[in-house]
């Protein structure tokens, strides 16, 4: 079981200060900025955003759980996104997911115990010519061949 670290509410406050108080239309934007700051959305941060932007708590959670970009659980240092767009799918992206499952012991949406890696699947990142594609944080790994991905990522 991963234990969530304590949330630094000063950082949350600093992010929220960039937005107009009580302006509910900024909710999605604010949650995005919070997530890029803390790498996930702890419930304290969602509550703070709801209060600051004067949005009912249920609406804030509804937005936070609706959009795929948001994660309500802590994620690993490296986020490995396996593209499952059509082009990647027909060029063998499912093998890449399989390789990661066996090599790192985690499937899509899961994080390794040591909090190093989170595996996610995404639908098309717009690099179809390089299929199958994996993105490790900001690094694009093109034309991933079976049996190679874990080594490529671990070697950094």
């Amino acid at each position: 079981m991963n234990v969530a670290p304590a949330v630094d509410m000063d950082r949350v406050g600093a992010v929220l200060d960039r937005f107009e108080k009580g302006e509910r239309s900024h909710l999605v934007h604010a949650l995005q900025d919070l997530q890029s700051e803390i790498h996930y959305l702890p419930k304290e941060a969602i509550k703070a955003a709801a209060k600051y932007l004067d949005v009912p708590l249920h609406s804030a959670f509804s937005v936070a759980t609706f959009y795929k970009a948001f994660s309500l659980v802590p994620r690993g240092e490296t986020i490995i996104k396996v593209c499952l767009g059509t082009s990647c799918h027909i060029r063998g992206a499912s093998v890449v997911v399989e390789d990661l499952r066996i090599g790192l012991g985690v499937g899509p949406g899961e994080t390794t115990q040591d909090m190093k890696y989170t595996v996610e699947v995404v639908n098309c990142v717009g690099a179809c010519a390089l299929a199958p594609v994996v993105i490790a944080n900001t690094r694009y790994i093109a034309d991933v061949k079976p049996g190679t991905i874990v080594k490529i990522i671990e070697e950094g």
Binding site: S25, L27, V28, H29, Q32, V63, Y67, K68, F70, N123
Partner: peptide, 25 residues
């Protein structure tokens, strides 16, 4: 410039507008 939240349905015009308004798309 508004950033999407990663929901395919937001490509639909009315959902997209809801999303810019800060709501669920």
């Amino acid at each position: 410039v508004a950033r999407g939240g990663g929901a395919f349905v937001c490509g639909e015009s009315t959902a997209l507008m809801r999303s810019i308004e800060g709501s669920v798309g």
